[in-house]
Design a protein around this nucleic acid. Structure first.
Length: 572
DNA sequence: GCCGTTTTCGGCCCGACTGTTTTCAGTCG
């Protein structure tokens, strides 16, 4: 039995909810929530750390008590304190906490006074008008709770970053039409380029905030207005996305942008630094007593706590503050650094466009090279290439290269890694290629051991170059393969295999966390569009976003190099 | 429950909006 980090975190979160309903010390509650966040944010398997007898108290926020509780969870799968607490308060109460406008106090009231513990019971009680009789509850609160239940039911999970962009843009453009709005910026996880976005946090600077809010709530994509004040407002759009708008004066722009960009954990740490210097940071600025001493720009806020500017993509409480203190922040890769694409398909298999069209489109992007990687024969969803078809494509590429002025088309293929770890074309043909891109497209449910060894065996093949979409996850659709990522990373390092960061918005695989670990291990990454059309070559941008979040610099990424340098890396 | 280059006790990030109040608690981000 392996206990995953998420399960440990979930137990701590549930315990925090129940203790809070129980009226426990709020700081103790916070400590458990902190612990949940720390555990789920760890790059490593907590179960492995425990089995290696690591000192867990080295993580700030984990003390002696929590370290012991983590060990017990890993060993037994249970948290005794949670079990005890659930004897007093049913665990289902923590689900009621998920309903908007219900917090610990109200959940406690409806449980203790009305014996309600499920959503259905809650709905019935509201319909019978029982809730409004409780102290502190009224008709409007009842309505809000009903709305909250509905919202929770249809709660779209976080949407993909790429899907959020058109929604954010239409909102930003609309706000810019307001003559009272100066700066308009979308902050939050959107600005941190996180792979998914939960809601949109819009920041506006203005002298007359009320006017901006008045304009905002008239946006025709709004379904419900949840709140409307003088400096902030929250709405839900028809698309189901929640939007929080905040309006501040110009002199607070940087402080507000920092505050609204998050992450929350990052902000808390920055504020803690301020407290040590006897300063106070809020969304209006940095204050010494009552006097604002910074806040117009984000840099001015960081400067006051002795830090250089930190890129939004790094603000995840993953060591960026420590790195900033030591002036060891990475210079992040940018789209301009990319000199070619190493994963793209044509209409010979499942792409939309011809070999020539793909090459022209890559040339138009200023690339020096483009690897054409149509699927190998085993892929059942398309007409995968057999040896003969691939030979024909190789000749076509030679012919095309003779015509092209700057771009070089690289001969490649996306090879299936078969169940036994073999590649599905023989070495005799693979040796004719510049590189191979290898991936798993079948048998997703093998045991962890078999799946891991399947990939490692594939890496043993001398013609294996890049492991494509290494974990196989599809955002919001398919979980990652059950693999021992540590072993795979070690094998990639050992065998000098390149790992792909697939830039398709629904893949972004490797993810940010594994990119950072790979970088620390010295493993090279290829950021690839996996384009199935000329237009999709531009999804490279999303790969760059994820790479920033994984702390990658130009030198960590192979397709920032010249073709000559690249070919040396391929010959391993 | 965690933590300490002023502290091993006494703090713990900070403010806006709503609804039910009649000065503020609860919730949220």
């Amino acid at each position: 039995m392996t206990i995953h980090n998420m399960e440990v975190a979930e137990k701590f979160n549930r315990l925090a909810d129940l203790l809070e309903i129980d009226g426990a010390n709020p700081f103790r509650v916070r400590a458990y929530r902190n612990a949940a966040r720390i555990v789920s944010g760890m790059g490593k398997n907590i179960a492995d750390l425990v089995s290696e007898d690591e000192d867990l108290t080295k993580f700030p926020g984990i003390g002696k008590d929590l370290a012991e509780k983590i060990k017990i969870i890993i060993r037994t799968g249970e948290l005794p304190l949670l079990k005890q607490t659930e004897k007093r308060l049913p665990r289902i109460l923590s689900q009621l906490m998920q309903i908007e406008s219900l917090g610990p106090k109200r959940v406690q009231a409806i449980y203790k006074k009305l014996k309600i513990k499920t959503m259905t019971e809650l709905k019935t009680a509201i319909e019978k008008g029982k809730l409004r009789k409780l102290a502190g509850f009224g008709e409007k609160t009842e309505q809000k709770i009903l709305q909250g239940i509905e919202h929770l039911k249809q709660a779209t999970s976080r949407i993909k970053l790429a899907s959020s962009i058109p929604i954010a843009n239409s909102l930003i453009n609309y706000l810019k039409e307001c003559k009272h709005a100066d700066h308009v910026e979308c902050a939050g996880s959107f600005r941190r380029h996180k792979e998914t976005v939960g809601d949109l946090d819009i920041l506006v600077t203005a002298k007359n905030p009320e006017k901006v809010i008045e304009h905002f709530v008239k946006f025709d994509e709004i379904a419900t207005i949840l709140s409307q004040g003088t400096t902030r407002s929250t709405v839900i759009l028809h698309s189901g996305i929640q939007v929080d708008l905040r309006v501040v004066p110009q002199k607070s722009y940087g402080a507000a942008l920092l505050y609204f960009t998050g992450s929350k954990a990052h902000n808390i740490n920055v504020r803690k630094l301020a407290v040590k210097k006897n300063l106070k940071i809020n969304e209006y600025g940095v204050f010494k007593g009552d006097k604002q001493i910074a806040g117009k720009t984000e840099s001015s806020v960081y400067r006051q706590v002795g830090l250089p500017y930190i890129d939004p993509a790094l603000r995840e409480d993953q060591g960026e503050i420590e790195a900033a203190k030591k002036r060891k922040l990475p210079t992040l890769i940018a789209l301009d650094d990319i000199r070619g694409d190493l994963h793209a398909h044509t209409n010979l298999t499942d792409g939309d466009d011809s070999l020539e069209a793909m090459a022209k489109a890559a040339e138009a992007l200023g690339y020096d090279y483009l690897a054409i990687t149509d699927h190998s024969k085993h892929l059942t969803v398309a007409h995968g290439l057999n040896q003969k078809a691939l030979l024909k494509q190789i000749k076509a590429i030679d012919k095309l290269n003779a015509k092209l002025k700057k771009l070089v088309v690289l001969k490649s293929i996306e090879l299936d890694i078969l169940e036994d770890g073999s590649l599905d074309l023989p070495d005799a043909i693979l040796k004719e290629l510049d590189l191979t891109v290898c991936s798993i497209h079948s048998k997703f449910n093998l045991s962890r051991k078999k799946q891991t060894e399947r990939i490692m065996r594939a890496m043993d093949n001398r013609y294996f170059t890049i492991l494509a979409h290494p974990t196989g996850r599809l955002i919001n659709r398919r979980a990652a393969l059950d693999i021992d990522i540590d072993r795979i990373l070690a094998a990639a390092k050992d065998k000098k295999c390149i790992l792909e960061l697939n830039a398709q918005p629904e893949r972004l695989d490797l993810n940010d966390r594994y990119c950072k670990i790979a970088k620390e291990m010295g493993i090279k990454i290829a950021i690839s569009s996996d384009a199935h059309s000329t237009a999709q070559l531009q999804t490279m941008q999303f790969g760059i976003y994820q790479a920033e979040r994984g702390w990658l610099s130009k030198s960590d990424v192979v397709n920032t190099r010249s073709l000559a340098a690249l070919k040396k890396l391929f010959a391993r």
